[in-house]
Design a protein around this nucleic acid. Structure first.
Length: 292
DNA sequence: CACTTGACCTGTCCGC
DNA sequence: TGCGGACAGGTCAAGT
């Protein structure tokens, strides 16, 4: 679902919308979506002020003034949608149309702020979660200890990319791109898009990638991620940003969900869909030849 | 050990 | 229409 660009877009939106707000109450209707004990919620979340929203890999980190932070993973169908009040925003504000629309059947957690505004965590499939953890302990959480580098970090180089990939030399490149311990934040859409852009077949073994293919893939991956963020996110079905708006990246996708349509580089060749690393995978069979 | 598969959930879409 | 099955952007645990 939401991958790095979507989570980044939600982060940017929340930073505009919720910083400084104070939590008045929290409701949740599915305990796996928010597994913390109610007494921790009362003690460290209710009454706390939101200081900052950060992102690491696909995880959102909302820092509170209680020395605790909320960690949020949207997984496949999660959304974080802010809804203000009519009086606060006035007619014509993008959130006006959402007033009265939420909560709905997919709402798992509702945060109510002291000014009367809301933040809803919606998640149709219930895979996502919200967790309250001591801010100082975040670096000690298993996931954060194991997760790979941020692909858009200024100090992430081709050499670093190559070195990370070589942790799994005998695996297909798509499986490795999806491995969060190798590189953070890449999911199914951007794996397919970057491999198409670099003209690499997804089952190509890492060890058989040439230096120039690795460099091309590195550039392609950063380009698709940056383009998607620039388009104000991305994707598809369930994804919406912090204001409940859908993204537009799917109209820029070259292969993802475009099976049966012509490849932009080979108008006579149709994009096909296969299964690689257990995931639906889209390629141009003309650009992306199998080379093991 | 390295890699693949199944489980977690609900909704939608496709074919009969 | 109704029903069964496959499938959906992620990640872990369990299996081979």
């Amino acid at each position: 679902m939401p991958e790095l660009p979507e989570v980044e877009t939600v982060k940017l939106g929340l930073n505009q919308l919720v910083i400084g707000k104070k939590v008045a109450s929290v409701n949740f209707n599915w305990s796996k979506s928010f597994p913390n004990a109610p007494e921790d919620v009362r003690q460290f979340l209710v009454g706390a002020q939101l200081l900052a929203v950060r992102r690491r890999a696909k995880v959102l980190i909302i820092e509170l003034d209680s020395k605790y932070s909320l960690l949020i993973h949207l997984k496949m169908t999660g959304q974080l949608v802010f809804v203000g009040t009519q009086t606060r925003f006035g007619a014509g504000h993008p959130n006006d149309s959402l007033i009265g629309q939420l909560p709905d059947t997919s709402t798992r957690v509702t945060f109510t702020f002291t000014d009367g505004s809301f933040l809803y965590f919606n998640d149709q499939r219930k895979f996502g979660w919200v967790r309250l953890v001591p801010t100082a302990e975040i670096p000690n959480i298993d996931f954060f200890k194991k997760v790979g580098p941020e692909p858009l970090a200024a100090d992430f180089t081709v050499a670093a990319f190559h070195q990370r990939l070589l942790r799994r030399p005998g695996s297909g490149i798509k499986a490795v791109l999806l491995d969060q311990t190798v590189i953070a934040g890449v999911g199914n859409i951007y794996a397919d898009e970057s491999l198409w852009a670099a003209k690499i077949h997804p089952i190509t073994l890492v060890r058989s990638l040439s230096a120039s293919q690795t460099k091309t893939l590195f550039i392609a991956l950063r380009d698709v991620l940056e383009l998607s963020i620039a388009k104000g996110d991305s994707s598809d079905k369930n994804y919406v940003d912090a204001q409940g708006k859908k993204g537009s990246y799917s109209s820029f996708a070259k292969v993802f969900r475009r099976e049966g349509q012509p490849c932009e580089r080979h108008p006579d060749t149709m994009i096909i869909k296969l299964r690689v690393a257990g995931r639906g995978t889209h390629i141009c069979p003309q650009c992306q030849k199998v080379v093991i």
